[in-house]
Design a protein around this nucleic acid. Sequence first.
RNA 1: GGCCCGUUGGUCAAGGGGUUAAGACAUCUCCCUUUCACGGAGGAAUCACGAGUUCGAAUCUCGUACGGGCUACCA
Length: 520
Amino acid sequence: MIPLSNSYLRGMEKVRVRFAPSPTGGLHLGGVRTVLYNYLFAKKYGGDFVLRIEDTDQNRFVPGAEEYIVECLTWCGLIPDESPQQGGPYAPYRQSERKSSYLAYAEQLVASGHAYYAFDTPDELDEMRARYKSEDNPSPQYDSKIRMHMKNSLTDPEKAKQLISEGVPYVIRIKMPENQEISFTDLIRGEVHFNTGQSDDKVLLKADGMPTYHLAVVVDDHLMKITHAFRGEEWLPSAPAHILLWKYLGWEKEMPQWAHLPLILKPDGHGKLSKRDGDTLGFPVFAMNWTDPKTGDLTEGFRERGFLPEAFINLLAMLGWNAGTEQELFSLDELVEQFSIERVHKGGAKFDFEKAKWFNHEWIKKSSNERLLPDVKKYFDKAGISTTDDTLLEVIGMVKERCTLLPDFVEQGGFFFQRPVQYDLESIKPKWNADKTAFFNALTEKLANLENWEFTAMEQLFKDLAADMHIKSGELLAPLRIMLVGGKFGPPVFAIAVVLGKKETMARIEQVLQQLEDNI
RNA sequence: GGCCCGUUGGUCAAGGGGUUAAGACAUCUCCCUUUCACGGAGGAAUCACGAGUUCGAAUCUCGUACGGGCUACCA
């Protein structure tokens, strides 16, 4: 933990950050990276990381999505200090459960003249947009120029009172100043300036009584004492409205410091990465598999694709941040220690799946066999190959440098536990002859009598026999490999034979010898 | 359209007035390895453009171009 001396840390106040997803579906790469940067920042300064569920939109609510998000965070090792599941001093952590508290704040804003009631129906809003739409203004907004032509408590206060008493549905909108400069310091971008005349009068409280994101973030960030707000760059345009809200509610001194994170872009750089890109480009964009409860559609996740959480976190961290050194491989602890918000990039990064795989490959190589065991075992189980921990541990050690994704272990190590389903006979048949048959017959005999079943003894025996029979051992090694492994891959042949054991090694040689005889 | 943000090899990027403009992924060549990998050596490849400031600009300023985001009773 670092002393609270940086300029962006106010005094001795405890750092508190939050990740506030809305439970509408799978958790996207960019979402996890936002969590990660939040988490790293909080932990670096000994602060708290809170998970708050922004389920204010009943229409978009998807059952199971919240549980899914929690599971993703657990898989990644980014455990919140406070959440709907664990609770905490500022519970509840689901905005739907805090519904009752927002109305008062919205009304306070109306009372102070910073917000107003609006009664326009969706159809009337459409009509307004259609009416003001022009080439110069393709998307008209409900703003300071237009609001006086609409149905609200600004245009007709008496009527508004009446409508409310009659129970006519209404929304509460913020009254954006006509022409006011708003500046703030973004931790990543520096000074950012806006003119309020460009922003619309955003709805703060919806007709169903639920707050919109705009009201809910500021109220909850305030109530939960959030000190630093990290979110995607797509929120930058609405930041002025949020800043105004902090001011109008009288909380300006406690406003969190903002940091708008760069976006993660499609590999071709056109637009932000979305769920559909994963489907078309052949790589996952979600952290874990997500099944849409309505359609039943499955979208693949990094976890199921065979990524280690360590690698997933690592590659995400490097998408928009680096330590300024040549180090690229970081554990979560190292990231916590070295992360610095000032080294986060301003520009979006195009996602490169090849590099992502490289990170996983590196993490597989540097992880202990014991660490890998449970994950690898799952894939063997899934393939219906039974293993024993002792042997699997050994096999993992032998093949891990050849594995990029977890499922590769089955491909690279399956033959240790099961006879190959197919033998690549084609690559040995052309050069096969009676001498070689004789050699392998002699070999099995000698092997049967070999007392110490270990690498050098076997290799010596093999070479001596080849020399005796005047055959180059190089021409013999390839067939032997195929007999044991099925194809031209894998660790050194004699190392494989050691693990296979005498009985199985000889059985495989004899089996293929037989097949060769039948075939030629 | 308007507003905002951005721009160093194909990709991630270091570098913040004077550098042969790091490193990694991918790619190519070679070495190691009687397989596949790992590993090692090397190659090709970059400061969007135009002005300005300066003895000197990838670095500072301004324009332009291009890219992205936002422009909902979604977040």
